[in-house]
Design a protein around this nucleic acid. Structure first.
Lengths: 221, 221
DNA sequence: ACAAAAGTGTTCAGATTACACCCATGG
DNA sequence: CCATGGGTGTAATCTGAACACTTTTGT
């Protein structure tokens, strides 16, 4: 289970790539790999669907961390399945990895913690591989779908949306071109609300079609 | 295991969509779903990797069908993992599906047979879902990668390559634009060989980089 | 008034589309 | 000599990239 999110913007002057994704990790205190971090996971019950097991793992995490929002990620999708013999020294384990996206790094009270996803601490088993595959998938999907919604609140400003693209793709995007392209795609609708601050207020938007939409091609501007 | 290929061109006048992909299927003679067709598969051994199990299943198929080529598909990749309880009435089964591509529908001597993938006979279990997901993936991937190589021989003419795109995408493509784009991508190299027939000989090409290459975007012409 | 982010057009280059004819060979 | 598929160019349009200033608010 790879749970990813983006930290809030701290230094607006910092390069886009500096706002790196965070991943939810749990420290291991038993062998093997004691002291390393691991991605949360769990066994699938004998009569449990894969999605059901994912929900259960997330619900447990939410309880342990006193962060209810973890139980309802904004986006959830299956990634790869890993089954090399020897990936767990204790015996044969096949793991079906899932990607969960959250709108913000909610504070966690338990042992789980947010770690930088692009430069994580040492990870147990083949979890570094699993994490890398999740990040690749996320980056690829930003380009041809609306997955960005998974990393935002229900309503958001155009600058916030642009910030998600910049943070995940690791480069800056031209504001005017970004907005023009977005307007042409007709995916967003104004909520009517505004985000206020020590500056001109920004209109809030939402994705017109709640969930994931695949595009022919691409936000690359 | 979804093994796909394309039939040879029969009527050059027929619309591109008429050359529909074929899928390798095996008739079931036991309950449940006796009389239906199923996708080939097998159990993963206790100390066997997933890829190793796939190779074994393919090798068995190749032996039963007297078609050695089945054991070495041109392309192989993991697809989705299916684990809903009740997908097999006999008990809990989790299936990791794989996509294998072949350059041609080799003749089969055993019980396995080629079936039209887009309008298959009744399929057992959730195999229709698995097949549909494989076709979706193949179509999507043609647009942003060189998977087409999986459905061709080692060397091929530009018209054959174009035929793969037309058959899988189900529409015709302009010959001159297709070739111009391909030239710009610099993915192909001439083998020096020629394909002869009752017409001007065609130069043979191969993909310069043996395997799969992902493109920024797209052959859409 | 000043700082901060929101919002908005135009120009240029490269890419994509549409479109039709001659060429080389086998039979 | 004819049928068959192989191979090639150009003009019109669309799309993507680069680029800077004015507006609205909070303090």
């Amino acid at each position: 289970m790879v749970v990813l999110t983006l930290p809030p913007v701290e230094d607006p002057e910092a390069p886009a790539a500096a706002r790196a994704p965070l991943v939810l990790a749990v420290p291991r205190d038993h062998q093997p790999y004691a002291g390393d971090w691991s991605l949360p996971g769990g066994l699938v019950g004998a009569d449990e669907g894969l999605e059901a097991a994912v929900s259960r793992v997330l619900a447990d995490l939410a309880r342990d961390s006193h962060a209810q929002i973890l139980a309802e990620p904004r986006h959830l999708e299956q990634l790869e399945t890993f089954g090399a013999p020897g990936r767990d020294p204790r015996g044969r384990v096949v793991s079906v990895s899932y990607l969960a996206l959250l709108g913000a790094p909610v504070p966690l009270t338990g042992r789980a913690a947010w770690q930088p996803a692009t430069a994580p601490p040492p990870l147990a088993f083949d979890h570094a591989t699993i994490l890398a595959s999740a990040l690749d998938r996320l980056r690829a999907k930003l380009s041809y779908s609306t997955v960005a919604y998974g990393l935002l609140a229900d309503s958001f400003t155009l600058s916030e949306l642009q910030g998600v693209y910049e943070a995940v793709l690791g480069r800056t995007i031209d504001k005017r071109n970004f907005r023009r392209k977005l307007a042409a795609l007709e995916l967003l609708e104004e909520t009517g609300g505004q985000r206020r601050g020590p500056h001109r207020p920004a209109s809030l938007y939402r994705f017109a079609s709640g969930g994931l939409v695949l595009l022919d091609d691409v936000i690359t501007t």
